[in-house]
Design a protein around this nucleic acid. Structure first.
Lengths: 340, 340
DNA sequence: CTGAAAGCGCTTACAG
DNA sequence: CTGAAAGCGCTTACAG
């Protein structure tokens, strides 16, 4: 079905092995020969047969990214950053949505990794904290990078931001505006065990630093979705004494708070200040636009893919932890509390 | 690196060809033998080597989906529907973000299709209306399905909804509520030629049917993004006599209208009614939630993937056009106009 | 620095 | 209904 390595070799007057060396940017080829081969490739419009490369090298040239479609907004940036890196190396990113909880995540990942023979896997929250999945990938001996893991974060390679510090900054921003009664809306509580909760801890740190109490009922937990944000905000805002500000653990939930507040006729930021986390697209799309903690999502995706690609072809991945910086982005959803 | 077709054949007491037949659900195997082979596969936990299958069959077992990251919300459902179908057939969906306009879309698609040897491509708007891309895929002889094409819609296979009828329904809904001065916010005008514009035409149909005029300045065009919706709404709403309702060609722009209206202190739906199109996630996330035209995005993705998978392994794709139904979803962003 | 040989694990014709 | 042979287009050891 067209031009093969043999055609290129014949035209350049070398063996196929030499063509293979040039294709894979291997050493031990004289510059003159390398140029000759390159010219032959260009003349013939040669495209290496990916199937044959996959077969002979026992690699698939495929990186997998598993994600929950409901958290799609958080994923988009990561996916873009990762896909771009893969492109440059002739790898392809297979972003696989998981219809959780309808689907058995572990079984799906095992099946996909084995059948498609993925050369690497990027795990994002909440999968990056699922130790069963981590154990599976270790057993399958597939290199994997976890994004912002909190459960056993030293296990394997990861890319992360300092979530705790992000929560401290968001909370401090509110305290500096004059808020004293601040509530926290976190992600789901782990079903078993006591996973570290850096965003909640950061909130508590900042409150403690400022000597502010966090009374009963001021901490509540959603599912990182818009509707769970609405629901939790309803609970918080129906209390006799409402908090004047809420720190949310992601933007989707913060947007849910905005919606719940609007329904009750509360003005944001006049009656209530709200902070998000992530700086996903939704943060600037809602009204008022969210003050939030920006994560460099594209960079996170690019870094994760880089680590995986650097581990090819051996598949030996250094268990490095790479930290990227966050940033407080002040928009319209925060202001000083109304003075009573 | 583990169990191969030879191991299975030996255990089942058949030739590798028979194992291959069972794997690929081919005919001409006795039921008893088929069962014996299946049992051997299960006993040995056999997973076919995808690389070898790809090589021998000259297929990649890969379907490509190209999309603009800025239109991610529209894509998520399509991606989910398509990925699910691929899964069942041992195919993988490679969803490739295109950083348009920074990247040459045609070159990127050509490169990806050729290097990864994609077995099929799903084209969503606006790529599905780019005839240069269509011509490229025809030349490359890759089967492709276009989602909701308006430019030369009979060229090749497609999955679509009746956009024109959707716009008629949205507009009629507003007319029935009592609106008479209704504006239209469309997608980008084609840079060259006169591509059909079904949503705009549907709007005009409904207005004409009701005998309502569409004066100069009541039609405006954005880029399907939230921010272009804001911008266009600013123009529409700063006119001396504002329209009482706006029909937007997608949800993201409709959300932008909401935001622009809020900034001007206009109440939706009290002062202004707004309709979206798609029923993407953002439609139910904004406040007030958008009245919109629902497209069955997961079904669209599933149908597109189905068509592509049905064309395997020959790659001969029937140029069928498959229509899926839309539905008016009434939420909070529409109400009768304020009586003056 | 370069190359001849073997082989990756399947599928595709072709026989029987 | 079943199988023996050839071959897909590369890469991996191994020589020289």
């Amino acid at each position: 079905m067209g031009v093969t390595i043999h055609d290129v070799a014949a035209r350049a007057g070398v063996s196929i092995k030499t063509v293979s060396r040039v294709m894979n940017a291997e050493p031990n080829v004289r510059d003159a020969v390398r140029e000759r081969v390159r010219a032959a490739m260009a003349d013939l419009d040669y495209i290496p047969n990916a199937g044959a490369r996959r077969m002979a090298s026992a690699r698939s040239l495929l990186i997998g990214l598993f994600f929950h479609p409901r958290l799609a907004s958080y994923i988009t940036g990561i996916q873009l950053g990762a896909a771009r890196q893969c492109r440059d190396r002739d790898y392809l990113l297979a972003a696989e949505p998981i219809e959780w909880p309808e689907v058995d995540v572990v079984a799906l990942i095992e099946r996909t990794v084995r059948r498609a023979h993925l050369d690497g896997v990027i795990l994002v929250p909440p999968q990056s904290n699922d130790l069963e999945i981590v154990a599976l990938l270790e057993r399958l001996q597939v290199p994997f990078v976890r994004v912002s893991p909190t459960a056993e974060p030293d296990r394997g390679a990861s890319v992360f931001v300092d979530d705790r510090r992000g929560a401290v900054e968001a909370t401090r921003h509110l305290i500096e505006l004059g808020h004293r009664d601040i509530a926290f809306l976190g992600g789901p509580l782990a079903s078993k065990g006591s996973a570290p909760r850096p965003r909640r801890d950061g909130f508590l740190d900042a409150m403690a630093d400022a000597g502010l109490p966090v009374p009963e009922g001021r901490m509540i937990y959603g599912e990182f979705t818009f509707s769970s944000g609405q629901r939790c905000a309803d609970t918080l805002l129906s209390a006799r004494a409402r908090p004047t500000a809420i720190v949310a653990a992601n933007d989707a939930m913060a947007a849910g708070i905005l919606s719940a507040a609007a329904r009750r006729g509360l003005k944001v930021p006049g009656d209530l200040s709200v902070t998000g986390f992530d700086d996903a697209e939704i943060a600037s799309v809602v009204s008022p636009a969210l003050t939030t903690i920006r994560q460099p999502l594209e960079q996170i995706g690019a870094a994760a893919a880089d680590m995986l690609l650097a581990a090819q072809p051996s598949g030996k991945l250094d268990p490095v932890r790479r930290r990227l910086d966050i940033e407080l982005v002040v928009r319209e959803s925060t202001a000083p509390p109304r003075s009573d």
